[in-house]
Design a binder for these strands. Structure first.
Lengths: 261, 261
DNA sequence: CGTAGGTTTGAATTGGGTCAATACAGGTGG
DNA sequence: CCACCTGTATTGACCCAATTCAAACCTACG
């Protein structure tokens, strides 16, 4: 469960033509549209990491090293623990996501990151990353967009936590996962929830019993089919309607199918 | 109430030796430690803005121009409005704060920003800002730290919204305002709340009645003295104890002074 | 195959929301 | 100057969505 350490290959150890095979950063850089020369520069700074096993911590809150990571494959959870031992899950980063940006200001990670399933990731020291940005404007710009997107995402979660009812929160969560799986080429309607009900509850500001009950209700009303962690979304549109519609809210809340009864 | 437009002075219109008098950006740059030459480069790109009157919108959600702003003086509120007209206040930026970063990704502001009191701000087009970053590494680094700090702040609010009870939220809010006023040289124990109860409620995920009741209770228990918007914090430490302490929570919740009754 | 952690479901409880009435402050115009 | 009005704040009474408490029930893995 300890923090894993980075493995840095020297140029000689790693065949140059291989680059970083299936490197998360390489994929992450694609939208930036780097030239092959820039791409090589970039690749040389990447710290390749051994895989994280399920349950392993990438780092804990307060630890001092400041690298950014891109998830190559897998699923993590990001959580804060406040002074009183209360946990708040702030995100579930998956393949292609950049993580660790909250550490830039203080030089310490402020949250703990744990693998929800066996994962692989690539890291880069933030100082190196910033250096590259100075010589590769496209990279810099891409980085700024990703940080801006993270801030926008966080604002969306504030809306969820501050203004939505339990069913809306769960529906929003499922739709968000659906979109993220779709964007990565997986099915957006049939997938496995890699996190526990506890994790979902913490993320959504709900108790586990509430999460469980809402999922059961959605299942009863045939919006989804669910077998513990295996979920199939049967109607994206009806799930979407749950959010913000007081009418739909009422009919889906009670244990009543929309037509019958 | 409409969006104000930027005024850009040409070099000839604006006396070079004046720079930007009391420019928010100049102050914002201080921690970056720019040389005077860099500072001048920077200053030349700042778009000076006319003051915002109380109630005026800096911009609305969806508007396309993407500048970053530093608040020179004053107080704003940042809020999202979702499809169903629900408002979520995501922050109360004040003097020295950098705002607008959520627009970098999509090129559109995702939230509305309104002046809570007469304010002045300086803006800079994001593209200009990024250009300067390429030639001034210290500026770039400072910007990254500020963005990272914003992400960290947002995570803290998620903890507040997802895991705290009403009294803890209000106590956290008051302490955060106290710290921010202190950091700017104002009193950290006696200040004016520039926002309405409605705004506070939206920010904290509570109804206005709840906000009002919690403040009344704090006042009854002599943690604070409050006259509508004028607030005096009588015990920072007891306010701090509210957060996360179930014992204190109970005794402060009921209308009972800690000793008497 | 046993057990610890995770999940579901029911019943009782409650913190905060909703509804309603009143109070109050700051304009505004006569 | 006062009378009026509008938006904001406070307070009380009641209610309900979500939590808490409790009891099975899985199911994964050592």
């Amino acid at each position: 469960m300890g923090t894993v350490s980075a493995i840095r290959f020297s140029a000689s150890e790693r065949p140059a033509e291989l680059g970083c095979p299936n490197c998360g950063f390489t994929a992450w850089c694609l939208p930036a549209g780097l030239t092959s020369h820039e791409s090589k520069q970039f690749n040389d700074r990447v710290e390749h990491r051994r895989p994280l096993k399920r349950g392993e911590h990438l780092h804990n809150a307060g630890s001092a090293q400041t690298s950014l990571y891109v998830i190559n494959s897998g699923f993590l959870k990001t959580s804060l623990v406040d002074g009183d031992g209360r946990e708040q899950v702030t995100g579930f980063p998956m393949t292609g996501d950049l993580i660790g940006m909250e550490a830039i200001d203080s030089g310490k990670y402020l949250c703990t990151r744990i693998a929800l399933e066996d994962s692989r990731l690539c890291g880069m020291r933030f100082a190196d990353f910033e250096d590259l940005g100075h010589t590769i404007p496209a990279l810099q710009h891409h980085f700024h967009r990703v940080m801006g997107a993270e801030i926008a995402r966080d604002h969306g979660i504030m809306l969820l936590l501050g203004a939505m009812r339990a069913e809306e929160r769960v529906a929003t969560f499922l739709l968000s996962l659906s979109r993220r799986f779709s964007a990565r080429g997986y099915s957006g309607t049939h997938f496995r929830l890699p996190m526990t009900r506890q994790d979902i509850g913490s993320y959504l500001g709900l108790q586990i019993e509430t999460v469980s009950r809402v999922l059961s209700r959605f299942s009863y009303n045939e919006l989804i089919a669910i077998d513990v962690k295996d979920i199939e979304i049967k109607s994206l549109s009806r799930l979407q309607q749950i959010i913000g519609d007081p009418e739909t809210r009422r009919s889906a809340t009670r244990r009543t199918r929309s037509e019958t009864d």
